[in-house]
Design a protein around this nucleic acid. Structure first.
Length: 434
RNA sequence: GCCCGGGUGGUGUAGCCAGGCUAGCAUAGGGGCCUGUCGAGCCCCAGACCCGGGUUCAAAUCCCGGCCCGGGCGCCA
């Protein structure tokens, strides 16, 4: 009863083995309670004088909070401890590690550490069941999305993280020493996804890490973040890409709703599977919507952070959705590789969730001559992009894709205060350790 | 990068604006009492003003500089 995989090991009859971190030790004269916490549940060891061997009292005398132990004993059927999942009368206890007292933060959360303290001491912070829930949910979200991609014929590929030329998208890149040359950490797997398409792979995705050397101090930016990035060939237009993206997000959330109710509850999140298709807003109508909401954005220009929140409010009221696409961004605000629509707009699509940009994508320009013309239009050096563009001269299908920021999706899905909460060991301009 | 706000025991806070006895409280830690606890309770003990300079009889408190952190904006996903 009450034992879950990895939490208790049944050894026959009522004998079990439990392990974990000591979350609490309570001493009541002739009885000692040791509460163990592991990633599945809480177990209480009950040591009654005269009932368990004196030896066990001696062994557990030196125990401190957060020490790691393992025990074997009898599972108590009518357990009296209400705050734990299982109760065990031990006959054997093995101490693996004694924790030093005076913890830099309390995993029991009696005193709540501040954010910098938490991230400075992240391994201790991660012991909190709520925090573990975030990453269990992330696992299931990704699993749900990958399952959907596989079922729909997408192949997982690994594109390079080190690139010999700073790819052009506007974001600052990290420079790395590459033998006797300079190279850069990718800010997005975008260009190599496109080259993979040109390589004849028609539906692919890349699940990986991206880096941005931006001095961004906001709850929605990380210097290192992960994305699930999809690219597909032989599309009719960017709406084909949007249909894939919304189903992908829906599948991920559906998996979370179905498999992670306990964790959602622990985080106090009431999550529902979104309805598809997601509403779509297009430029230039976006300007009118914003104007009506009292926000003026110059025609032909990109909108700002406030506009994203206003558009969410609009979509929420009009369509009752937390997700929406914004399509046909001004070409001027987007990179050279996007495909133009009727000027000055582009087949460039953002997916927003609760007012935050989750992804950028759309249809790419696959026609060599047009691509080269757009590079000139952007004032970029054709020479520096030749490593990328030259393959478009040897047969490129119409294609498109997008990259969803995983931490951002997690943040909005779980109503987290910051994307950093969705990173195991977050990296920002101030933090590279631990 | 810009604009705000903040650094007090291991952790989290009060005190700062209106400078002044042994810097208060919670929690964690050490010790003691209690046979079943449910964030147990009660008693005792130990533990702190970010760094540097200045003003003053006197600085945690006021001023200047530095370092670090948080929030917002911008950049960006």
């Amino acid at each position: 009863m009450g034992c879950k995989r990895g939490a208790c090991l049944h050894m026959g009859e009522e004998k079990v083995r439990v392990h974990g971190w000591v979350s609490e030790i309570r001493e009541l004269g002739k009885i000692r309670f040791i509460v163990l916490r592991n990633w599945e549940q809480k177990a209480q060891l009950t040591l009654k004088k005269g009932v368990v061997p004196d030896e066990l009292f001696k062994i557990t005398d030196e125990l401190t909070q957060e020490s790691v132990i393992e025990a074997e004993g009898e599972l108590v059927k009518e357990k009296k401890a209400k705050a734990v999942d299982v109760e065990v009368i031990p006959h054997k206890i093995v101490v693996h590690s004694i924790s030093r007292p005076q913890l830099p933060l309390d995993p029991n959360w009696k005193v709540q550490a501040l954010t910098p303290t938490r991230f400075d001491n992240r391994p201790l912070d991660l012991r909190r069941p709520e925090i573990q829930s975030i990453f269990k949910i992330e696992h299931t979200l990704i699993k749900g999305m990958e399952d959907w991609l596989r079922e729909n014929g997408f192949l997982r590929v690994f594109t390079p993280a080190i690139i010999g030329a700073a790819s052009e998208s506007g974001a600052e890149v990290f420079e790395v020493k590459y033998f006797d040359r300079k190279a850069y950490l990718r800010q997005d797997p975008q260009l190599h996804r496109q080259l993979t398409i040109i390589g004849g792979f028609e539906r692919i995705y890349d699940l990986g890490v991206n880096w941005r050397a931006e001095l961004s101090h906001t709850p929605r930016h990380l210097s290192e973040f992960r994305s699930i990035a999809v690219e597909m060939a032989f599309i009719r237009d960017e709406t084909d890409v949007m249909r894939v993206e919304e189903e992908l997000v829906k599948a991920g959330i559906k998996a979370v709703v179905e498999e992670r109710q306990k964790e959602l509850e622990l985080l106090g999140v009431n999550l529902e599977v979104p309805k598809t298709p997601f509403p779509e807003l297009r430029f230039p109508k976006v300007y009118d919507i914003l104007e009506e909401m009292g926000k003026h954005v110059e025609y032909g220009e990109d909108y700002d952070t406030e506009s994203e929140r206003l558009l969410w409010k609009y979509v929420k009221e009009e369509y009752g959705s937390d997700f929406f696409f914004v399509n046909r961004f001004p070409f001027a605000a987007k990179p050279f590789y996007v495909m133009k629509a009727e000027p000055p707009w582009a087949r460039s699509v953002d997916l927003l969730y609760k007012g935050l940009e989750l992804s950028s994508g759309g249809q790419r320009e696959h026609r060599y001559e047009v691509l080269m013309e757009q590079i000139r239009e952007k004032g970029l050096s054709p020479k520096s992009l030749e490593w990328f563009t030259k393959f478009f001269a040897y047969g490129a299908p119409p294609h498109g894709g997008f990259a969803i920021g995983i931490e951002r999706l997690m943040m909005k899905m779980l109503n987290l205060q910051s994307v950093k909460e969705a990173a195991l060991f977050p990296r920002d301009p101030e933090r590279v350790l631990p």
